[in-house]
Design a protein around this nucleic acid. Structure first.
Length: 486
DNA sequence: ATGTGC
């Protein structure tokens, strides 16, 4: 695209021209370079979001934004249920509550360098990964509903992890308002043997080291020091979240599965823009409430999944490094719709904030943060592409007014999976990463080509843009040593 | 992201 028509508001904020149907402005956060590289589809999608009923303040794209199903990935939009606000499947994303958690290990890079290979093999054996791969747990009978209602709280109750973990997870590890009865039996069946598994695509389990401290005070609050080893887990709700999204799209979008099967698909009364992918339902409607009940079950599923994987990782470390203590720094989801309190025109309101490929980023002092983190702000875990840096940022006070306390979630794709496969060879990438000291283990070398660092934006540029826009403050930069890749 | 398809 050209920058023609975008109005610059400061160094890292751009407003799209208001076109017909837009109820609020559409805002892109990012440097000149990142905004210039965004494709037209991403901006068209952002405009569509700005047309939805009940949207508050603005439709926003984070610096890592790219086009997705309906909403852009890297999109943030808040809706007011009292003014016809909607909830959208494409606004949450297919992998409901996909997210990142980071564990501190108490080890340093020097401790583990000589045993990287052994660690890579052990983690790869212990944590199932890859398309369709199941885990070690089979959910029988009542267990499924209990997991969907209880999230990480359920998992800790079953012996996966420790109670102290729960304080370091959004919502104490359990999203309230989940209604497992609104999850289809088909969706339930898909998670039956998948709990405690990574999945595929951009999901990973990485052992990283803290290469640079960028904010000493906040790093101290997060217990991070230069040279420290941390473990980051990036995954979501596997087939269950995907199926929940698909089920509701099929039900609510005209031209969906019902029509393809020749059944009478009722025209969807909730589709306000001419794009089937923008399917949504009023928050205050029967299907809206039903989707929220199912989607929150998907959130709990992802929280339980990351909790079980944490347990598996701890078992591996207990074997190889018996002195290590794997304390949870934080767990943050980046595909959600959450009911949150925000100040709009001087009044506190409950808004339904969609963050799709965007993280919550609460500023210092927020009451939802655990006491130990309250002074520093919420850890914002920004996952890098394979073999590249990741960042730990912290939420800011300005972020509340700028982006409903939201920030970027990762590097963000620039090449499609197909294009990445054309340009890169998985085995060659693994070999060159090995030369750089990064030990990669995977079920799929094709997946490695799709996840080539060259298929992603520059994460340094993304995080410096988020910082420049005031959405989050850089705390530490990490580099990978071991990567188990879906 | 995804039993990488209906």
């Amino acid at each position: 695209m050209t920058l023609h028509g975008l109005a610059r508001h400061g160094e890292f904020e751009w407003h799209l021209p208001m076109t017909s149907g837009m109820r609020v402005p559409a805002i892109v956060f990012g440097s000149l370079e990142l905004v210039r590289a965004m494709d037209d589809k991403t901006l068209t999608q952002l405009r569509n979001v700005a047309c939805l009923p009940g949207i508050v303040r603005a439709a926003m794209a984070m610096p890592d934004a790219h086009s997705g199903y309906g909403f852009p990935i890297g999109g943030v939009a808040a809706f007011d249920p009292a003014h016809g606000g909607v909830v959208s499947m494409g606004g949450v994303g297919f992998d409901i509550s996909c997210g990142v958690r980071t564990l501190l290990t108490g080890l340093t890079r020097d401790h583990i360098l000589a045993r990287r290979e052994e660690l890579a093999d052990a983690l790869f054996r212990a944590v199932p990964s890859g398309v369709g791969r199941g885990g070690t747990i089979i959910l029988e009978g009542e267990d499924l509903a209990a997991m969907l209602e209880g999230g990480a709280v359920w998992a800790v109750g079953r012996g996966y992890g420790q109670p102290a973990d729960l304080g370091r997870i959004e919502d104490g590890g359990r999203m309230p308002g989940a209604v497992p009865g609104h999850v289809s039996p088909h969706a339930g069946k898909r998670i039956r043997d998948q709990l405690g598994s990574l999945g595929s695509g951009n999901h990973y389990l990485e052992v990283q080291w803290v290469e640079k401290i960028l904010d000493p005070a906040r790093s101290a609050a997060f217990a991070l020091k230069e040279g420290d080893v941390v473990v980051s887990i990036h995954c979501g709700s596997r087939g269950l979240g995907h199926q929940i999204g698909q089920d509701f799209i099929d039900e609510l979008a005209p031209g969906g599965k019902a029509r393809r099967k020749g059944k009478n698909a009722a025209p969807n009364p909730y589709l306000p823009v001419p794009d089937r992918e923008m399917v949504c339902a009023p928050i205050d409607s029967e299907p809206g409430r039903r989707y929220l009940g199912a989607m929150r079950s998907g959130i709990n599923c992802a929280l339980a999944n990351r909790q079980v994987i944490t347990h598996l990782v701890r078992e591996v470390f207990a074997d190889i490094f018996p002195t290590a203590r794997l304390d949870l720094l934080y767990d943050v989801s980046h595909n959600t719709c959450r009911a949150e309190s925000h100040r709009v025109d001087g009044k506190e309101k409950t808004l339904f904030v969609h963050r799709k490929g965007a993280t919550r980023a609460l500023g210092p002092g927020h009451p939802d943060l655990p006491a130990a983190l309250r002074g520093a702000g919420q850890p914002v875990l920004v996952g890098g592409s394979m073999g590249t840096a990741s960042y730990i940022l912290a939420g800011t006070t300005e972020g509340e007014a700028r982006s409903f306390s939201s920030a970027c979630h990762g590097a963000g794709r620039v090449l499609s999976r197909t294009e990445a496969r054309r340009r890169f060879v998985g085995r060659d990438l693994m070999e060159s990463l090995r030369h750089q000291g990064v030990f990669v283990r995977t079920m799929s070398s094709r997946g490695i080509a799709e996840e080539a660092p060259g298929a992603y934006k520059d994460i340094d540029e993304v995080t410096s843009s988020a910082a420049g826009a005031g959405l989050a403050a850089p705390v530490a930069r990490t580099l990978p040593l071991v990567c188990v890749k879906g």
